[in-house]
């Protein structure tokens, strides 16, 4: 690990100033991803600004919905009674990820900033456009079983590893950000990027911006929801494919629907095309199959991840069935 200076921020402004003036400075909170990346030299910050003392860990219900402080720990969020009763999909998604110890450390803001598990990104001996722009992508011709089937580019085929973010995507979360030039609110769908020509940028966040909270709008999805995660072992593994499914069913008809997929793209993959098919239809297996089939139409697999296309299709159907059966 490269030497760095350590700074403990006492307020939001000094925290932002602490990283604003240098690309090589980073915020640290839970550390579960950043320290890992520093150990393998993928991240080499020369200054760490510890933000854990900032008062950003509250989880509050309000008339518009729920505000989640960026420093709330994943476990606190997952087990929060308001979350369990109003946003159980989010709770389920969080608990599908990592381990209890990691969830006790990792913050919500940090989870949003989680970087890919692409083998080649994690190996500094391999070329990687995300780590080293212009170096090339070893995954495209390499072993790409865990890689993207949606929205990849010829520069990068990495996936976003988070479960929580898939839940947030389905729930239309908004990311509240503070920066040197003021505050802004970024819809979750716009927060993470597709790789395109600049795969080094995972998100639209600027260097001098700090995530302060996540807002969840009031949700009609507390009754019919399911987070399905298909993985290589029963727990403590990243998703091969995951699906956050949420339905609002009224008088036997789907009034609103949300589908987001994990493990398949550079960002949580919102299946808008599926949602369009579902809304107004009856919650039947045929409808679900149509929605799933439409979703995978845009899939582009690579040599080792072709199975993900069929798996994603079936997982969407299953998640929707489970969501329907929940009530």
């Amino acid at each position: 690990m490269k030497p760095f200076s350590y700074v403990r921020a006492t307020n939001q402004n000094t925290a932002i100033q602490g990283v604003a003036d240098r690309q090589s400075a980073k915020f640290i909170a839970g550390g579960t991803n950043l320290i890992d990346l520093m150990k393998v030299e993928v991240a080499q910050p020369d200054r760490l600004v510890d933000i854990t003392q900032l008062p950003l860990s509250e989880i509050e219900i309000n008339s518009d919905g729920l505000r989640i402080g960026a420093l709330a720990r994943n476990s606190d969020l997952a087990y929060n009674p308001e979350v369990r009763s109003h946003y159980p999909l989010l709770s389920q998604a969080i608990l599908a990820g990592a381990s209890p110890q990691l969830r006790n450390m990792a913050t919500v803001g940090g989870n949003l900033m989680q970087r890919t598990r692409c083998y080649y990104f994690m190996d500094i001996a391999a070329p990687c456009n995300k780590r080293d722009p212009g170096a090339g992508c070893a995954a495209i011709e390499g072993y790409n079983r865990i890689h993207a089937i949606f929205g990849a580019s010829d520069k990068c085929i990495a996936t976003h590893p988070s479960d929580m973010c898939v839940g947030l995507a389905a729930l239309d979360a908004k990311v509240r950000v503070a920066g040197s030039n003021g505050d802004r609110i970024i819809p979750i769908a716009d927060f993470h990027r597709l790789p395109g020509d600049i795969p080094e940028r995972d998100t639209v966040l600027e260097q001098d911006e700090l995530i302060v909270a996540i807002d969840l709008p009031n949700s009609p999805f507390a009754k019919n929801y399911h987070y399905l995660k298909v993985r290589d072992r029963a727990s403590y593994a990243f998703a091969l494919v995951s699906v956050a499914a949420a339905l609002e069913i009224e008088n036997g008809t789907i009034k609103a629907a949300r589908i987001a997929l994990g493990g398949v793209a550079h960002k949580p993959w919102r299946a808008f095309v599926a949602e369009d098919i579902l809304v107004g239809a009856k919650p039947t297996e045929e409808t679900f199959a149509a929605a799933a089939t439409a979703t995978i139409r845009e899939a582009k697999p690579y040599r080792h991840n072709q199975f993900k296309v069929e798996m994603a299709k079936r997982a969407i159907v299953r998640a929707l069935i489970n969501a329907t059966e929940k009530s």
Partner: peptide, 9 residues
């Protein structure tokens, strides 16, 4: 609370 002491400073 239980945590992984290896991933933190």
């Amino acid at each position: 609370r239980r945590i992984n002491s290896c991933l933190t400073l």
